[in-house]
């Protein structure tokens, strides 16, 4: 017997619309609203044992309390499967459903929700299993018919197939697998489909870039301490730490103390992603110590940190990029630096 917990909002519980959106989280025994259809679909394989209802405004405005209530409900009910929504195109409801799925994942409980592919809830918890739906409850029966088998599969811990096969939206996870034809034939077949207005599905969905919010500007550069960081792999001649020319996983720090510029007797560039001869002959092209010292002398910058930080920004795994970035940032911060000149290559 599969024990199913169902999360719905105040509207689908039949309590009310926007005027009831502040409804506090409350559990009910058995199915409510769309849960009845879910209950029927389960036939004799399981039951909707409990329904958690919460107002959309409450969930979004008092998120911490809502999360606690969701968690307490799951811990009490111990469902084998949580079904959230479906939320269709309702944004706040979608956010709540995604959050319910996240809480379930943290408790190792299988969970499925459903929403329209443009629902902002998709951004909340990318790993959630979300079945795409239409923009309104007119699509409820069809959506539940996809959500429940997927949930049953997840609850039984059977490996779940690719998104396109199982009918959920891509979760930002890609795994290797073979296809029916060789790559070259698939490529020309996809082009022919596109040229003749037949349906086709890309094998690599192009993702939007993550936006990095810039740090606030430095109020007064004349009193600021500046550090230099470069992905250009400028190292002391001889490359004492064996920094790799590509696919490096580490970063390194070296001293600039007592130097007015970088000489090619003492430094070299070991970056393998560009023809680095010029940079090795004049390392200031990548790490502009000569110009920074001028600015320091002219009083345009306050101080220059005696240590610089470098890695090889060439074919580095993103996971290493992120760790290197965080570690360099921590080192710079603990050195009391106000600003960083980041020289990319």
């Amino acid at each position: 017997m599969l024990r199913v917990g169902h999360y719905i909002n105040q509207f689908f519980a039949g309590i009310g619309g926007e005027q009831s959106a502040n409804l506090t989280p409350q559990g009910r025994d058995g199915p409510v609203g769309p849960g009845r259809a879910l209950h029927l679909l389960l036939k004799d394989t399981g039951a909707v044992v409990s329904t958690l209802i919460c107002g959309d405004s409450f969930f979004n405005e008092r998120a911490a309390e809502a999360r606690t209530a969701v968690r307490a409900w799951m811990e009490e009910i111990r469902p084998d499967l949580v079904i959230a929504g479906p939320a269709f195109a309702a944004g706040r409801y979608g956010v709540a459903c995604a959050e319910v799925c996240r809480q379930a994942a943290e408790l190792d409980i299988a969970a499925v929700t459903g929403m329209h592919p443009e629902n902002p809830g998709l951004l909340v918890h990318k790993q959630a299993y979300v079945v795409p739906t239409g923009d309104s409850a007119a699509d409820l029966a069809r959506a539940l018919n996809v959500m429940l088998p997927l949930g049953q599969k997840l609850a039984s811990r059977v490996p779940v197939g690719p998104a396109a096969v199982e009918g959920y939206l891509p979760r930002g996870v890609r795994r290797p697998g073979a296809r029916g034809e060789i790559g070259a034939e698939r490529a020309i077949a996809m082009l022919v489909a596109k040229l003749t207005a037949q349906p086709f599905q890309t094998e690599i969905p192009v993702e939007k870039y993550e936006a990095v919010p810039p740090a606030p500007p430095i109020a007064d550069l004349r009193h600021a301490t500046i550090a230099v960081v470069t992905t250009g792999a400028v190292v002391p001649r001889g490359n004492p730490d064996h920094l790799k020319r590509c696919s490096e996983t580490r970063w390194a720090q070296y001293t600039l103390a007592g130097r007015d510029r970088l000489s090619s007797d003492e430094f070299e560039c070991v970056h393998g992603g560009f023809f680095n001869l010029m940079a090795s002959e004049n390392p200031n092209l990548v790490l502009p110590l000569d110009v920074l010292r001028d600015l320091q002398r002219e009083g345009k910058i306050g101080n220059l940190l005696d240590t610089y930080f470098t890695t090889t920004g060439n074919d580095q795994r993103l996971i290493d990029c992120k760790r290197n970035g965080a570690e360099i940032a921590a080192a710079v911060q603990s050195a009391g630096v106000d600003g960083v000149l980041l020289v990319a290559t």
Binding site: V160, P162, P170, V173, R174, P176, G177, A178, A184, A187
Partner: peptide
């Protein structure tokens, strides 16, 4: 790297 698609190996979204 199979630059020109000699094989059937690929990646799937999950």
């Amino acid at each position: 790297f199979d630059n020109y698609g000699l094989g059937r190996q690929s990646y799937y979204d999950y």
